[in-house]
Design a protein around this nucleic acid. Structure first.
Length: 157
DNA sequence: GCCAACGTTGGC
DNA sequence: GCCAACGTTGGC
């Protein structure tokens, strides 16, 4: 199957694209996801090599700031089993994990971040899941055209 | 800090 | 299975 594309949101005060660039092997587990739609996307649809747009939310100028890649298949999110983690889930067990994570690796920072405002102004992105009213998913699918259009808005060929 | 939108929970 | 209450997200 052709590689798919995704957009992942993160609050930069919590975990920024720079944090990912500075992580060992520029890779981190994308764990702590506690939304079933997102869980299903990660578990059932993500494939290593899928391209990702890294989006900073809840900040002055919400923007896509970097490109990343899915770096592992989905695996049970260890934080669900850790009573010390804020993402601990009493109802999850090793036999029947509820939550999944994938590893995410930074590819490159965008020369020019692509702001939410800029994306709203681009007709090719009019159907983008991120721009739909009321959408709050932290991971969502992006079409190949949308992916390339965002890169074009960032000044990349 | 406000508030709209939406997911989850739990009583019935 | 309904739905009100509550919590969270995230742009503004």
């Amino acid at each position: 199957m052709a590689p798919r594309h995704w957009l992942i949101k993160s609050e930069p005060r919590v975990y920024s694209f720079d944090d990912l660039l500075n992580a060992p092997s520029r890779t981190t587990p994308w764990d702590g996801v506690r939304n079933y739609q997102v869980r299903n996307l990660m578990r059932d649809e993500m494939t290593p090599g899928d391209g990702m747009l890294f989006y900073h939310s809840s900040t002055h100028k919400p923007s896509v700031v970097g490109v990343a890649v899915v770096a592992s298949a989905a695996y049970p999110d260890p934080t669900q089993f850790d009573p010390a983690s804020p993402s601990f889930d009493l109802k999850a067990s090793q036999d029947t994990p509820r939550w999944f994570a994938v590893d995410v690796r930074a590819v490159r920072r965008l020369d020019r971040p692509v702001t939410l405002e800029a994306m709203r102004g681009e007709p090719l992105l009019s159907g983008m899941a991120l721009l739909r009213r009321g959408n709050r998913l932290s991971v969502m699918p992006v079409t190949p055209v949308e992916f390339e259009t965002v890169l074009a808005l960032a000044g990349e060929a």
